[in-house]
């Protein structure tokens, strides 16, 4: 039997990154400030986690403007959705195999 631990994505070890993915998977697009409010973390912290997800092509970044203020919105990519779903499946598998 394959150990489900192997299917867990290392990138999702971080609670913040997992939180970002959870929010993005059920929303069309969320902007930076809304994510910040949801997760209750600082700008720098959120930005670094978003960068990690962006580098792995799990989220798409769209930069725009509302008036003069920048408005950066984030969307989940197909690859991100796939990775996130298999991560959840692996977690469920682990619970089933033990419990």
């Amino acid at each position: 039997m394959i150990n489900p631990i192997n299917n867990l994505n290392k990138l999702f070890d971080s609670r913040v990154r997992l939180g970002i993915m959870s929010a993005l998977v059920v929303n069309d697009a969320i902007n930076f400030n809304e994510l910040k409010e949801l997760l209750n973390i600082t700008d720098g912290n959120l930005a670094s986690h978003l960068k990690a997800l962006e580098v792995n092509a799990f989220v798409k970044v769209e930069k725009g403007f509302i008036g003069r203020k920048t408005n950066t919105t984030y969307r989940i990519t197909k690859a991100g959705e796939k990775a996130f779903k298999s991560h959840i499946a692996a977690l469920e598998q682990m619970i089933k195999s033990i419990g």
């Binding site: 939180g19 959870s22 977690l91 469920e92 619970i95």
Partner: peptide, 20 residues
Amino acid sequence: ENQQSLETLRDIKRMMERSS
């Protein structure tokens, strides 16, 4: 590990609800 996975899944569900 079992409890940890369960807790993580709960976190995910909570965040999905909170954000949507």
